[in-house]
């Protein structure tokens, strides 16, 4: 199990991570979501031992990861723009990774066929998507205990994304691999991740199991006979509220039954509870936090 305990990280003078506490369960797909510059890649680099935290601990099974050979052996990091040696081919890169990780040759060739890549073609001749596929292929064939993918879906076409999700699901089932993915493509993450963490300005805003988090947020649309008064909703844990005369749109956190009972007591003409998407949740959280900062200022 991976744990972040009160982790702080500065890049230069800028604080990138601030008191991050996080637990990544084994055998799951963990999604890291957040705005640009929220600290997702930094978190992955801390996890892979590239960066050392300035405060707190990053642990794997209770051991610090940084410069720890046995921990790093279990982690493979594929960055958003992976490095390849001068004029190297996929076969060359495979040979390089083979020295460090136990690459399953059969799996490698199976995926090579699936992704339709030429292993003897220099990687510089590959398109961005093909290069991405090539490195994901290597990561999957290496089957480490933790596979870290930065901006995993970047450059992949929908068919490849589907293949990729299927392969990861198989790997988790077969080899008990855990995958930690950072991505902006929240639609892809929603039906793929078991748990997630939402980062904002270097802190964890929300984390937990994907289903629980999504069922805890509700998108509500209501219409009233009279003009809507914002004070009516003070009892609720509102993320965002949009009032348009007699119509109100709400994003509310909390137990669905309790919220419904309360809202029905306001005697609305229309009351609708709509399912929330991860992308919506992310946007509403970001808007909510930015408004809170505005109010504080």
């Amino acid at each position: 199990m991976i744990e972040f305990q009160h982790v702080y990280k500065f890049l230069g003078k800028k604080q990138v991570l601030q008191d991050v506490n996080l637990t990544v369960p084994d055998g799951s797909v963990f999604g890291l979501i957040g705005e640009n510059g929220a600290g997702k890649s930094t978190l992955l680099r801390l996890l892979s031992g590239i960066y050392q935290c300035d405060g707190g601990k990053v642990l794997l099974d209770g051991e610090r990861i940084y410069d720890n050979r046995s921990c790093k052996q279990q982690i493979l990091f594929i960055s958003d723009d992976p490095f390849q040696f001068f004029h190297s081919t996929l076969a060359d890169m495979k040979r390089f990774y083979q020295d460090w990780y136990d690459i399953d040759e059969a799996l490698y060739y199976r995926y090579l066929k699936l992704f339709q890549l030429d292993e003897h073609e220099p990687l510089t001749n590959f398109s961005k998507g093909m290069k991405r596929q090539a490195f994901i292929l290597l990561g999957l064939a290496a089957a480490p205990r933790y596979l870290l993918l930065d901006e995993a879906f970047d450059g992949l076409d929908p068919i490849m994304r589907r293949h990729f999700k299927q392969i990861i699901a198989d790997q988790i089932a077969d080899k008990k691999m855990s995958v930690i993915i950072s991505s902006h493509d929240l639609k892809e993450l929603q039906d793929f991740c078991d748990s997630f963490a939402m980062l904002e300005n270097g802190t964890i805003q929300t984390s937990g199991l994907m289903n629980e988090a999504l069922s805890d947020i509700h998108h509500i649309q209501m219409a009233f006979l009279t003009e809507v008064n914002p004070e009516w909703f003070q009892e609720l844990d509102i993320i965002t509220m949009q009032i348009n005369s007699r119509v109100v749109k709400l994003y509310v956190k909390g137990d669905e039954a309790r919220i419904r009972t309360y809202l029905e007591s306001l005697k609305p003409l229309v009351l609708e509870l709509l399912p929330v998407q991860l992308e919506e949740m992310f946007i509403q959280e970001v808007i909510h936090n930015k408004e809170a900062v505005h109010h504080e200022l």
């Binding site: 892979s48 590239i50 790093k72 052996q73 990091f77 960055s79 723009d81 992976p82 490095f83």
Partner: peptide, 10 residues
């Protein structure tokens, strides 16, 4: 990019 490749090596 090359640091991303070499530093995580076990």
């Amino acid at each position: 990019r090359s640091v991303d490749l070499f530093y995580p090596l076990p």
